[in-house]
Amino acid sequence: MSDLVVRCRNLGRTYDADAIPVHALRGVDLDVVAGEFVSLAGPSGSGKSTLLNLIGALDRPSTGDVVVDGVALAGLGEAQLADLRLTKIGFVFQAYNLIPVLSARENVEFIMQLQGVPARERRDRALEILASLGMAELADRRPGEMSGGQQQRVAVARAIVTRPALLLADEPSANLDSETTKGLLELLRRINEERHVTIVTATHDPMVMSYARRRVQLLDGRIASDQRVSAETA
């Protein structure tokens, strides 16, 4: 029996912008199983980012419910949602993932600091994950001393060092050129296949979509299609 990492039922999100309601998401059902690599794709306004935010406990739904790793988000307060994000979910954003004044290692350590991991252990784990992801030489560099692609990859390291149930990436390639994007996606594929990290990305980049083995198409706030594909070269 496989573990259900994400379970969404009848998820809806409406914004009241200038008294005109905007239905970003309408009645979406989505299940994500452990170890999947999912891309949420669609044009702008399709609701993919909204869906990602709801899964990531960054936003509250107007209708429906979300369960992440067996925990129902509905009854949780802000502080509890924060704890959930800290321990169960890893994030990679489009940009500004890292604290500018901390080195790569310190950025990876930071998230463990928030969890209260003791100093020696977190230092070891940080160096270990950077090395195993091929970024050992970036350990003492600050974000300002790295390229955009390197920053994104360090962000991935930070996102998984706490062994979360889920890694969410919102438009991770938006600021990168195609070559660098490929490097990032190779990394994501590796951690998905070798460490069985469940990944859900929201993207409109076809290259990102091609690496995902389950492609969910969204249109106007609803799921238009949901395809599983076998491994494919990009």
Partner: peptide, 30 residues
Amino acid sequence: MPRETLAASDTALPTPRLHRAGGLGLSGAL
């Protein structure tokens, strides 16, 4: 597909912790 072994506390609702920035010394440096 089994996931990597998680820390024990991860299966239940996470409990709030006191030091949210790793203690005074590290916050001081940051």
